[in-house]
Computed example of a mutant assay.
Amino acid sequence: MDLASWISIFMALIAVATAIVTYAVFRSATDPTVIVYAQPDLQRQSIVNLIVENIGKGAAHEVSFKSSRPLPEKAFSIPVPERTPDQMQSGPIVTGVPFLAPGQRLSISWGQYGGLYKYLGEDPIHIDTSYYRARANRLFKKKLRSSSILDIRIFQTSESTEHGYGPNLVKEMKTLNTTLKSFDKKLKNSNPEPPY
């Protein structure tokens, strides 16, 4: 083979590689990616929510979940309780999700640290999620997959940050207290006590 043939083969390989990279970039920009994770509730102190979220750019269709073992449900207890919480019997993790838009997230009140730790212990739960692209052709429908790990121990020493009702209530009470003191002072100044 002469030099021109080698150059032609090399250019064809570059074209194929470029097409593969372009397709991969296109897929990453349009495919859904569904993950499951635990997150403290910023409005309700000590509550941990279970979040199902589509962090991808495309909509997910027929989302189903398979966990390494059953998940707990309503595990509400700050200290580690004596009784183990019940297994999850309902909700999106059990029944699946028909459609999840890009950026959409489902939040489930999962429990508190003590109750969740009693159930999960030192053994994290692995969740495999499978789903389809929402507009995939039925003949060429490819199942997409992602994996998540739920480990409650990450919240063991984290600070419980108040972002919701607590600080707002304290702020309102301080304002009310200042207003009442001012009102009381004005009343005393306008109506002095008669001398005896």
Rank of each mutant, 00 (worst) to 15 (best):
D184N: 10
E162V: 03
D86W: 03
S148H: 01
K118A: 08
T161Q: 04
L144A: 04
R69D: 07
K143Y: 00
T161V: 15
M173W: 05
G103H: 00
H163K: 11
I127A: 01
T179R: 11
L150M: 10
Q89C: 04
T129Y: 01
R153H: 01
K142I: 15
K174R: 11
F155R: 01
I152M: 03
V94R: 03
Y113F: 13
P79G: 00
I93Q: 07
P70D: 10
K188D: 11
S158L: 13
P195T: 13
P70L: 06
N177Y: 12
L187K: 07
L187Q: 09
S107I: 13
N177F: 14
F140E: 10
S147E: 15
S158G: 13
R145E: 09
H163C: 09
F140Q: 02
H163A: 10
T84M: 14
S148T: 11
Y117P: 00
K174A: 09
W110Y: 14
P79T: 12
K143I: 14
H163R: 15
F155C: 04
L106V: 14
K74L: 09
E159T: 10
G103A: 05
G115V: 06
Y196V: 09
K66H: 13
L116N: 02
R83D: 14
R133C: 06
I78K: 06
N191P: 01
L139K: 15
L100D: 14
F99K: 13
Y113D: 05
V170N: 02
P195E: 14
K118G: 07
E172M: 07
F155E: 03
S109N: 10
K171R: 13
K181A: 08
N191D: 13
N168S: 10
K181V: 04
T175C: 00
S146K: 01
E122Y: 11
F99H: 05
R145F: 06
F183C: 03
T178D: 14
Y113A: 01
P192Y: 07
P192N: 02
S68R: 05
M88K: 06
Q156W: 05
Q89F: 06
L139E: 12
P195Q: 12
V80F: 00
Y113W: 08
G111H: 03
E159K: 14
V80E: 15
I127M: 04
L120C: 07
N191Q: 10
F183E: 14
F140M: 11
Y165E: 14
D128P: 04
P92V: 00
R133S: 11
K66E: 13
I108Y: 14
V94K: 08
K181I: 07
I93K: 01
I108Q: 10
T175F: 06
F140V: 02
T175G: 13
G91W: 09
S130K: 08
L106H: 11
S77A: 15
L169K: 10
L180R: 09
T179G: 10
I125H: 02
R133L: 13
W110C: 08
A134Q: 05
S77M: 06
A75E: 01
S158V: 06
F99V: 10
S182C: 02
L169W: 09
S182M: 12
I78F: 12
I108K: 06
G164R: 06
T175Q: 15
P124A: 04
Y165Q: 09
T84P: 07
R153S: 12
L144D: 07
K186F: 06
K142C: 02
Q156P: 00
Y131P: 00
P98Q: 11
A136P: 06
